[in-house]
Design a protein around this nucleic acid. Structure first.
Length: 255
DNA sequence: AAAGACGACAACCGCGATCAG
DNA sequence: TCTGATCGCGGTTGTCGTCTT
């Protein structure tokens, strides 16, 4: 019953990957695609756990990775996305072609957190740090467009458009439509979930533009666990301004 | 020049969701 | 339907290079 174990831990290497291991992994995936990670190490002649191979490939060896320093533009996008999504690094990575969730997570922890603190912004809540001397004036690297978001408290404030009292839309230039369309028989290419995921707006794909120009409606269905194939009304109400997000109804809860 | 502190990032660990038998 | 493996994710740790004293 069930599947066989994913790997024999007793005979697997750990720690840093060698060049030879990298070459083996690259060569194998080039020849056979990403397929089944469990069987990959053996087939590729690697003494590694499949999980480790997947991680190495996703975070380091994939040819479409950008690598190198993050641009200020990328930083700002990450900050905005994080304020909306929280620590959903894979979702954030989906909006940054060539960047991995792990890379973004590390960059957040090492650079951006500090950057926000220097701006007087709490990295977790994205709100001004209370009583902070940083609230004014602006620091040189604080763009005038940056605005602390409304608190997206999933537990208490499910329909936050009513909770956000300001008439001025928060992050007016960001359109992050993460709604998911009904499952389509899209061919499972050799890629994986870490591939660059282009969010869809209706049937239209959007990608972050260089000037970070986005529309207003933001659907967080996916992030908040909206599942079950129910259509998101975001698409039906393009005029809605502000944030829309959903969460699954709890037992006994009704709309 | 040496030692310790710090920063950056690769890799591991554990968990939840999903899938396969 | 149940059980257990796999996958993918987020948090954390380990290691190495650089900086400071």
């Amino acid at each position: 019953m069930g599947r066989s174990p994913c790997c024999e831990k007793a005979h697997t290497n750990k720690g840093a990957w060698t060049k030879e291991e990298d070459q083996r992994l690259i060569a194998y995936i080039k020849a056979h695609g990403e397929g089944c990670w469990r069987s990959l190490p053996k087939a590729a002649g690697l003494l590694r756990c499949g999980k480790s191979c997947r991680l190495r490939w996703m975070n380091y060896l994939r040819p479409d990775l950008k690598r190198g320093n993050f641009t200020d533009e990328e930083d700002e996008l990450i900050i905005k996305l994080h304020s909306l999504l929280g620590n959903k690094w894979s979702l954030i990575a989906g909006q940054l072609p060539g960047r991995t969730d792990n890379e973004i997570k590390n960059h957040w922890n090492t650079h951006i957190k500090r950057k926000l603190v220097s701006r007087g912004v709490d990295p977790q809540t994205h709100r001004p740090i209370n009583g902070s001397q940083f609230n004014t004036p602006k620091t040189p690297d604080q763009p005038t467009s940056y605005k602390a978001p409304p608190v997206l408290n999933q537990a208490e404030d499910q329909h936050s458009s009513s909770g956000t009292t300001s008439d001025e839309p928060w992050l007016p230039d960001l359109n992050l439509d993460l709604s998911i369309s009904p499952p389509t028989p899209s061919p499972k290419t050799s890629g994986s979930s870490s591939e660059v995921v282009t969010p869809l707006v209706g049937s239209e794909a959007i990608t972050p533009t260089s000037n970070l120009s986005y529309a207003r409606v933001i659907c967080l269905c996916y992030h908040l666990g909206f599942r079950g194939g129910e259509p998101c009304s975001c698409q039906a109400n393009p005029d809605i301004q502000g944030l829309r997000y959903y969460r699954p109804l709890e037992e006994g809860q009704h709309l």
